[in-house]
């Protein structure tokens, strides 16, 4: 097991190196001069040159790259020009907010999509099958900023059920001591139910928005994989041996259908990591996605590079986790690994 993990991580190293090179080059070829941006519109050419020298932008490209890589090995992602703080600190502060939102959205999506897909496959052509088709079509065709704004309009403006879409927590409440960085978990650990309820109120709408988006591919894949599994010959054997409905559906069909569902889950998760920028914007969520977008607009290289690198690492870890889960579900995979 440990050997598998290490060898998988080893094969990920070249991709990481590639990500480092490409993000560095990409940010350099993007239009916009950070020195110009930060000097302001009225700065003299000498002031701009001074800022450029201070940022090291007057050095040749390979010197800049060598400096960047050397800093990376020290765990230093540089300093953000917009916030004035080290990028590592910024990301560490904002990543839990994004992760909490994405994970909750994914839980909601899985919690709805998997039962819906199973039921739709079991009762093909029934109302639940049509409902599944409707929900998946809506999920893929409605963009997240639209569902997000609609949710805010209905639940905050019209009904008033939801708090103002302004970040993770009401500004009058104080955050619980950070242990995991996830407000929902930290507040429970601190035993602070008031904060928990407030945080839940804030996160529910954006998480639902993400969930509806993620639900569509998952439900479709679950339905298709269940249909394929249910028509397999070993299901016929199980029926011919008198096995009951529940055993057939869960122990026989669903466990076999889980492999494609898991693959889709991995893909949806990585979409969400990137796609929640829009949701973060709509709900003023202090996440890593909106941080990266702001930095990109400001031609602030260090946060953008840091963001892409963080995403790459998360993506690699996610794929590793999914590969390991594959092995748990399917004995044939263990043999291959």
């Amino acid at each position: 097991m440990l050997r598998t993990v290490l060898s998988r991580l080893g094969t990920a190293l070249p991709s990481l190196a590639g990500v480092v090179v490409i993000t560095f080059l990409l940010t350099r070829v993007l239009p916009g001069d950070p020195a110009l941006y930060f000097a302001g519109p009225v700065a003299s050419p000498e002031a701009i040159a001074a800022i450029r020298a201070q940022l090291g932008l007057d050095q040749p490209l390979w010197t800049q790259f060598a400096g960047y890589v050397a800093a990376l090995f020290r765990g230093d992602l540089g300093t953000s020009l917009t916030t004035g703080r080290p990028v590592v600190e910024d990301i560490a502060a904002r990543l839990p907010a994004s992760a909490e939102l994405t994970l909750l959205g994914l839980f909601i999506a899985v919690g709805i999509a998997v039962p819906l897909g199973i039921l739709a496959a079991l009762r093909q052509g029934s109302w639940i099958d049509h409902l599944c088709r409707l929900v998946t079509t809506a999920g893929v065709s409605l963009p997240v900023f639209f569902t997000g704004l609609l949710a805010v309009y209905v639940f905050y403006y019209l009904l008033g059920w939801s708090p103002a879409p302004l970040g993770r927590l009401d500004s009058f409440l104080s955050e619980p001591p950070a242990r995991t960085g996830f407000l929902l978990i930290d507040s429970l650990l601190a035993g602070d139910t008031e904060v928990f309820r407030a945080a839940l109120g804030q996160i529910l709408l954006p998480a639902l928005t993400l969930g509806i988006f993620a639900l569509a591919p998952l439900a479709r894949m679950t339905r298709a994989a269940m249909l394929a599994a249910l028509s397999a010959e070993f299901i016929r054997t199980a029926r011919a041996n008198g096995l009951g409905g529940r055993t057939i559906v869960f122990a026989y069909a669903f466990r076999n259908a889980m492999l494609p569902v898991l693959t889709t889950l991995g893909m949806v998760f990585s979409f969400l990591l990137g796609a929640n920028v829009l949701v973060e914007k709509v709900f003023a969520w202090p996440g890593i996605g909106s941080y990266a977008v702001e930095a990109l607009i400001a031609s602030d290289f260090a946060p953008v590079q840091g963001f892409v690198l963080t995403m790459a690492i998360l993506y690699i870890l996610l794929n590793l986790a999914i590969d390991l889960l594959y092995g748990l579900i399917d004995p044939r995979m263990r043999k291959v690994a």
Partner: peptide, 18 residues
Amino acid sequence: GREISMIFQNPRAALNPI
């Protein structure tokens, strides 16, 4: 399975692979 049971063609496919 208890009174009448059945064996099939293609035995590998007739068994749950996992």
